[in-house]
Design a protein around this nucleic acid. Structure first.
Lengths: 225, 225
DNA sequence: CGGTGTGTTGAGGCACATCAAGCCAGGTGG
DNA sequence: CCACCTGGCTTGATGTGCCTCAACACACCG
């Protein structure tokens, strides 16, 4: 249970890995993958499961910077040492890619460099849109846009769909810059607005995708009861 | 007045531009450089002055995503069209770089691709740290870390230094996700803590760099009077 | 001289944090 | 079997940091 669909787009969305000597690694839930300060000599491509990328502060507060799903690459924005911690949210498999190998290969096949730049571009866009989410949006807008972005990763966009949400309220809170209580209250609010329901724990049923998206994009005034 | 030091590291920190057919463009304060939705066919390297990168929302609110200083590249994270607006904060000069030319050149000289990836990496790091600033920090911590990051761009880090701050309170507020009043109040608070002073408008004198940095890094409890 | 843009300061309100209590499911041990 | 604990989640009461609204100081300019 709680297991994310394995890469539905086939073996790997990222052609670089197929041109390289790569390894595989299997993680159980909560197994660590990267510690902040480690030598950043590898990239990781998520094959199955969900990986949690986060920073812990001196005072114990935690900012989750990303949930990495199958097809995502971890470590692109890292120079010599990693600036974050990283562990498995669920059972997961990742492909390990040596950065040294990768750079050598890119030298031989420049077109792969463009691919990597594109991946990096996407990561920049993601980080910037997270900035905006965290700064400009109200609590309910953050929760709504979080659910939307989960749904969008599942490709099959319709008006109604069920969504596996393997992360706890604490994970969501630390990703959205809220407390678990506020996350919980706003999920309840979305329920009472008939936009979603929770058939089982760890599952969200989206009734009205368009409305959820409008709320997440700040196009709805949700202050009324 | 209000003019930022021109690139003190010489002609260009970015070797790519020297290998390419590039153009130059001069902007007066408030001249636009990029409109959201434009074809993203160029990158821009700031030579002199400060460029403001921002998004405007349907409701008129504005999020400044970056202030670009000499040596910075604008447009790296953009696919086919720009997703932001961009104008000059001060008098500025930028080098225009055709993306098509650039890609062609990278194909011939793969080592430039690695350079670009590094630039992209830096941008990812910047965007992520902005996320954290916006989400985890109190108002005074945001203002302090903003001043610190301005000071760090000036390289010469000591315990005391004067800083040219060419942006208005509104710019700072829209960068930090605060209101102009809150920015003003917290600058006053930093003054009354004897960490900074304002010799003239547009100039900040940092008395205690270490303390400012500690505040910006959330290592100080500033709730007491 | 009034008009405009920028910055500062004060009073009050609101959204979210904090503190606290309780529900439910699952596990463990008597 | 029940008693008890634990972890995840929800809900309520209260506090607080920042926003909102408002007034004013100051420089610049036609």
């Amino acid at each position: 249970m709680g297991q994310i669909q394995s890469a539905q787009d086939g073996i790997s969305a990222w052609p670089v890995s197929s041109a390289l000597d790569t390894g595989l690694r299997t993680l159980r839930a909560h197994d660590p993958l990267i510690f902040e300060g480690d030598d950043a000599d590898h990239l990781y491509e998520v094959i199955e499961g969900v990986i949690r990328v986060y920073k812990v502060f001196y005072d114990g507060r935690r900012q989750i910077m990303a949930f990495a799903f199958p097809g995502d690459i971890i470590g692109l924005g890292q120079a010599d040492i990693y600036s974050f911690d990283c562990d498995a949210l669920t059972f997961a498999r990742v492909r390990t890619i040596s950065k040294a190998d990768l750079l050598r290969t890119v030298r031989e096949r420049p077109e792969l460099g463009a691919q990597m730049l594109e991946m990096a571009s996407r990561e920049i866009t993601a980080a910037q849109s997270l900035s905006i989410t965290l700064c400009r949006k109200s609590a309910i807008e953050r929760v709504a846009s979080f659910l939307c972005s989960l749904a969008e990763r599942r490709r099959d966009i319709g008006t109604s769909q069920t969504l596996s949400v393997p992360m706890t309220r604490a994970d969501i809170a630390d990703y959205l810059g809220l407390t678990i209580e506020t996350v919980s209250r706003n999920i309840t609010k979305l329920k009472s607005l008939d936009v979603i329901s929770l058939p089982t724990p760890g599952t969200v049923l989206i009734h009205d995708m368009k409305r959820l998206k409008r709320i997440g994009d700040c196009e709805v005034d949700t202050r009324a009861a």
